[in-house]
Amino acid sequence: MHNRNQSDLLPYEKLAILDIDRKKADSLPMEVKEKLMAGEVTPIMQVSINARNGSIITMPMKLQMTTDKNGAPALIAYPVRAELDWERNKVLNLTQQEAERLARGEVIQKAVNVNGEKTQQYLQLDPETKSVIHRRVTDIKLEQRLKDMEKVNDIELGMQQKQQVREGKPVELNVGGEKVSVGIDLKELQGFKLIKGDMKEWERQQKLRYDEIHPEYLGLVMTDKNRWEYQKVVDRQSVERAISLSPSRKETKANSLKL
């Protein structure tokens, strides 16, 4: 799958699978539509899926627009989970060590086989959903990001520093007498982030647990008034955090659902 920026229409056909018809999609807040069309991960949204037994399952998840290997529009859904279930994630095929690194807020690089296509991807745990966000390494355009940063700040990174960033490790720099930290962050639109502060500040921000700040998860919900509003979608103790579809569904074994 290719996480390319999208500048055309919303993926109406894919959104319809989640009971978001064209009217509902067009009424989404502009910030959410912009994130979708840019290939960025959306805020939590409450959506509905038709189960095989005919019932409708409502669940909170984040969405990300992408394309498949043939360039056709695709949608990745990141359901809210109780915790990272690395053993059942057959697509990413995580080891215990990799899962522990992700849980610590690290970004890792790994060869991932998706739909028969094996590519190097960056992986990062989303603290809200406990799902792993992943993007192809080539989609980040890291070399250009580094060149732009060097030009704007009139600095030059050493070979070792550049290699660290390529591997997903943040680096600390001195720019005009001030410390800044740069690195991969898949939650950002460009997949790359620069912050003011040293490595301790970077780690503090990366390890920041969303649910420690917000005991009640807010997400976009389509109300009876036919408009999207932010409402509480998951309680801290709610069993909805451990979403489980029918065990026979192949998608539940993966970290994310491809629509």
Rank of each mutant, 00 (worst) to 15 (best):
N153K: 08
K130S: 15
M149H: 08
L75H: 08
D148P: 01
R104A: 12
T67C: 02
E98R: 00
V47R: 09
P170H: 04
M159I: 09
Q163I: 02
L92H: 07
N53H: 10
L63V: 08
Q161W: 00
P60Q: 07
S48G: 06
R101C: 09
T119Q: 15
P73K: 08
Q160W: 01
Q160K: 12
R145N: 04
L75Y: 07
I57V: 13
V152F: 09
E143D: 14
P170Y: 05
V165T: 05
L92M: 09
I155D: 01
Q96M: 05
Y122V: 11
I44L: 15
E156I: 14
M65E: 07
D139P: 09
I108Q: 02
Q109A: 12
M65I: 01
N89K: 01
N174W: 01
L94G: 10
N174F: 01
I76Q: 13
V47D: 05
G54R: 09
L157K: 07
D68T: 13
I133L: 15
Q160V: 11
Q97I: 14
K130H: 15
V132R: 05
L92D: 03
P73F: 11
V112H: 07
T95A: 06
T119E: 13
V137Y: 12
T129Y: 03
T58G: 00
R135G: 02
S48W: 05
T58D: 02
A51Y: 04
R145Q: 12
P127F: 08
T67K: 12
K162R: 15
V91Q: 12
E172S: 05
Q109S: 14
K118C: 01
K110M: 15
R166W: 09
N53A: 04
G168T: 12
V132K: 05
Q64R: 15
V171G: 13
T129M: 05
I49V: 14
Q109W: 00
R88K: 13
K162I: 13
N53W: 10
L123C: 05
E172Q: 11
Q161M: 08
A51K: 14
Q144E: 14
R166D: 08
N70K: 12
Q121H: 14
G168V: 12
I57L: 10
Q160H: 04
G116R: 10
G54E: 11
T138Q: 06
V152M: 09
P79R: 10
K151C: 00
D154S: 15
V175F: 02
T66H: 12
K90T: 13
V165A: 08
V107K: 03
K110C: 15
L123Q: 05
G168P: 11
K147F: 10
I49P: 01
N153T: 07
Q64G: 08
N115Y: 13
R101G: 03
E172W: 00
Y78E: 02
Q97S: 13
R52V: 03
D148T: 14
K169I: 09
E83P: 02
T58M: 02
T95Q: 06
S55I: 03
K169T: 08
N153G: 04
S48E: 14
